[in-house]
């Protein structure tokens, strides 16, 4: 049973990947060790700290508590998948508003905040704090994290304006 491998195919950051893996490989390990995407961090490994948060089909999920085999056919986005030719507005906002200190939790916080802004494009401070309930910053840098997410919301709403004009 130790060597029982399962073939898995999923899309990671827009690229289809296939591997033969043990079923017990967690998504966090799959991303880091099989694909070398070490931007996804493993903090507590007990589904509490949220540092390992990635998007599965657009939803924020703690990848230390998901088996890679559960993601068969699904689309995973990690921190590496955010920046295109320029930084994602979330990354730009965190840089500008000093949203990271040691940086360990940052990728998980940003992935969580991306889903948060999908739900609340213009969030209140309270909505941000509640939405980020599942990520812990051991530097306790929450004030700047909240400011960064507010700034990201503002950047992203500006980004979307031209598109709306085109539609109108």
């Amino acid at each position: 049973m130790e060597n029982h491998l399962t073939e898995i195919t999923m899309t990671v950051n827009g690229v289809s990947v296939s591997r033969n893996i043990e079923p017990r490989v967690l998504l966090a390990h799959f991303l880091r060790e099989e694909l070398g995407l070490t931007g996804t961090h493993i903090g507590c490994d007990t589904s509490q700290c949220g540092a390992c948060t990635v998007l599965i089909d657009g939803e924020a999920v703690k990848s230390c508590t998901v088996l890679a085999v559960q993601c068969m056919g699904q689309s995973v986005t990690t921190i590496e998948g955010l920046a295109q030719t320029t930084l994602h507005p979330m990354q730009a906002a965190f840089r500008e508003k000093h949203g990271l200190q040691c940086g360990f939790c940052t990728s998980g916080v940003m992935m969580t905040a991306i889903e948060l802004l999908k739900q609340y494009p213009n969030p209140t401070e309270s909505q941000i704090r509640q939405g980020l309930d599942g990520v812990l910053c051991r530097c306790t840098g929450y004030e700047t994290i909240v400011r960064s997410v507010q700034h990201a919301a503002s950047l992203m709403s500006k980004q979307e304006l031209p598109q709306e004009e085109e539609v109108g």
Binding site: A60, T112, G131, D133, G134
Partner: peptide
């Protein structure tokens, strides 16, 4: 229940 990520699963 818990947080957004957990409620998603």
């Amino acid at each position: 229940v818990a947080d957004m990520q957990v409620r998603n699963r």
